[in-house]
Design a binder for these strands. Structure first.
Lengths: 223, 223
DNA sequence: TTCATAGTTCGATGATAACCGAACCATCCG
DNA sequence: CGGATGGTTCGGTTATCATCGAACTATGAA
């Protein structure tokens, strides 16, 4: 008995845009931190924390503590399957309601993803880095010799970055573009230098603005 | 892009308790009218109408007009599959939030289902009618000779009922009990006579109260 | 120890949407 | 033509819940 309400509670959980973004981000299979999830969800960390608590409560996600990080992942393959099926339904239904998350509008172009560049510009930059052989593609992106020179050339201290525990290169699924952009220590460093060099400026909230000098720098692979 | 929000809109649709009840009721495969669905959902016809419009809009249910009735059914097997999977998840999660629908509390025991008795009492009555051979089980319940006598004995005009277009005996899935109770013309007639004979009284809203004389009458199969 | 980063909890606010009463359309029956 | 039944639309009310600021806890680094 009460099957109706029971499925309702689970569906309602998935039915919130922020939580749906969190869940779809986790469909990649990798465990992500609360901060990263806050980014893809487009809401603040506090809000995300609340959502994650609910999702964990309902056993849709699982948590793993590792030092001061908390890694969240989907609780099991079952959850992923349901999400897949829901996507299928949504596709067929041509659902369009799209109650866009807060700040969503301006963030599509360029935004801060945790501590690196995301949005159209972020995706474009990564693909450009591959094209120009500054990075080589693979499981995770990998720095090439040509890349070492280029990044050092704009003032990034690669040696210092490599001494840190944080992985140098990671890719991160861009939720508005559904393609990867560059994360990891290098992603963060590029953003930091780009701001210092006037290539990127901070906008409202998490939005970023790529200046015209920034656009040409990215296009020419920092040359 | 925007996959997150898209799945969110579908999930949110399923995530409302009233709509979830509607959808689970339709999982039986039979097409039901708006009034019947209003009953299982535990909300008024107006509210149900709104819900059905949204569900139809998202292609989760399909409508068929037949005279002045509108028969609603699940749009396709896909939808049923998703619902199944969600039920599975809900089960594992031990979801308990159960934001019960309005009036839900008092309706579990006995309530009006469209125009017949539902709830624990309704389910118990049908099973008693089978046990005492007033009805024989099957695709739909079927009236026996013994049943004709018994029902005529309490003042039900079976001939008149059979002249009507409405099917005499139908079963109807009880949403609180997840078992069948008796619907159709006979189900309605039994309720009508039960009220006339003081076996059942109307309570608040759609709730019904089975009196002690009613309980013994049902237990003894109207003898 | 102090500072910084990661995350949670709490309280207040605001917006969405479910809900119902009432009035309105549509179909069938006599 | 009425009258009755099945459904939908509209408006106003209410409750829920997502959201964020601020304060707090916890882990790690210097």
């Amino acid at each position: 008995m009460k099957d109706g309400p029971v499925i309702a509670s689970v569906a309602a959980l998935i039915g919130d845009p922020a939580r749906a973004n969190i869940l779809t981000a986790l469909m990649g299979g990798r465990a992500l931190t609360a901060s990263e999830l806050a980014e893809v969800a487009g809401v603040t960390l506090q809000t995300t924390s609340g959502h994650l608590a609910k999702l964990a409560d309902a056993a849709l996600v699982a948590v793993e503590k590792q030092g001061r990080h908390r890694y969240y992942r989907l609780h099991s393959g079952d959850v992923a399957e349901v999400l897949e099926k829901l996507m299928g339904l949504a596709q067929r239904s041509g659902a369009v309601r799209v109650r866009t998350g807060p700040r969503d509008e301006a963030m599509r172009e360029a935004r801060l993803c945790y501590d690196h560049l995301a949005g159209e510009q972020g995706v474009a930059l990564l693909s450009r880095l591959f094209e120009t052989d500054l990075l080589s593609p693979g499981e995770t992106p990998c720095l090439t010799d040509k890349g070492r020179n280029a990044f050092s050339g704009i003032g990034i201290d690669l040696d210092a970055l490599e001494r840190k525990r944080r992985p140098l290169c990671l890719h991160c699924l861009d939720w508005s573009e559904r393609r990867h952009h560059l994360a990891g220590g290098l992603g963060a460093a590029i953003l930091e230098r780009s701001i210092a060099l006037g290539w990127i400026k901070r906008g409202e909230g998490r939005t970023l603005i790529v200046t015209s000098s920034g656009r040409s720098a990215f296009r020419n692979a920092f040359a």
